[in-house]
C-alpha cells in the first residue's frame, strides 16, 4: 500500500485519501502550483509541503476539523481542500496558511490529500501521473525526518516552550494541535 485511506469514526461515509511523495522535482512542483492557482479540475487535491506537518495525528486533526466544518457548513475556506490547509495553521489567515503549508517548490516532499467518492486506486493512478513519482509509505517516523523543527517552532510560537528532545515529535504534536484548536479565540 502506497496510499492511506483514512476513515474518521464519526464520518465513516467520508473516506479521505492521503499519500506522501518524496523527491519531487522543482519543475513539477511549479506546474502543480500554477495549475492549483488556475483551479484546474485535474489538480483538485490538497497539496502540502512536509516542513510543518509534525505527525499523522497533527494532520488528522486538521482532516477531522475540516470534514466537521464541511458537514456543519461552517467552513472558512472556499473548498474542503483549502480548509484542510487552513486548519493546520495556528494563524487566522487563509493566504498565510497556503503560503506556509501549501505546495512549496523548495520542498521536494509533498503530501497529497483528496476527499472523494471516486475509487482510490483511480485517484492514485491519476495522482502518479501529475506528480511523476511513486508514493512512499507515510508514517510518524517518516514525517519526523521531514519536518523543519526551527520553522515549526516559529510558526507555532514555541520558542519559549520547555521541550524535551527525546519526545520532541510527541510534544510538538500536542502543542501544535493545541495552537490550532485555539486559533482565533
Amino acid at each position: 500500500m502506497t496510499y492511506q485511506e483514512v476513515k474518521l469514526p464519526q464520518f465513516p461515509e467520508t473516506p479521505v485519501f492521503v499519500s506522501l511523495f518524496t523527491g519531487v522535482s522543482e519543475d513539477t512542483l511549479n506546474t502543480i502550483k500554477t495549475e492549483l492557482v488556475a483551479a484546474n479540475k485535474d489538480y483538485d487535491f490538497c497539496f502540502l509541503n512536509t516542513n510543518h506537518v509534525i505527525s499523522l495525528e497533527h494532520l488528522y486533526h486538521s482532516l477531522y476539523k475540516s470534514v466537521l466544518n464541511h458537514k456543519n457548513g461552517t467552513m472558512r475556506a472556499k473548498t474542503l481542500h483549502t480548509e484542510i490547509i487552513f486548519n493546520l495553521s495556528p494563524i487566522n489567515n487563509i493566504m498565510d496558511a497556503l503560503r506556509r503549508f501549501g505546495v512549496d517548490p523548495e520542498c521536494p516532499d509533498v503530501i497529497a490529500i483528496k476527499v472523494t467518492d471516486e475509487p482510490f486506486e483511480e485517484v492514485y493512478k491519476h495522482l502518479r501521473k501529475i506528480v511523476g513519482a511513486e508514493a512512499v509509505e507515510i508514517n510518524d517516523r517518516v514525517l519526523e525526518g521531514l519536518i523543519n523543527v526551527p520553522k515549526v517552532k516559529k510558526i507555532y510560537k514555541l520558542n519559549d516552550a520547555k521541550l524535551d528532545e527525546q519526545h520532541l515529535q510527541q510534544l510538538l504534536t500536542r502543542l501544535a494541535i493545541g495552537a490550532c484548536i485555539l486559533r482565533g479565540n
Binding site: 486533526h61 466537521l68 516552550a161 520547555k162 500536542r174 493545541g178 484548536i181
Partner: peptide, 22 residues
C-alpha cells in the same frame, strides 16, 4: 482549553487537549 494548552506549554502536568468544539 486555553488554560490546559498553556499548562502543556509550560511543562506542568495536566491532560492535553485532543479536540474542542467550542
Amino acid at each position: 482549553v486555553k488554560f490546559m494548552a498553556k499548562l502543556t506549554k509550560l511543562g506542568i502536568k495536566a491532560p492535553s487537549v485532543i479536540l474542542a468544539d467550542f
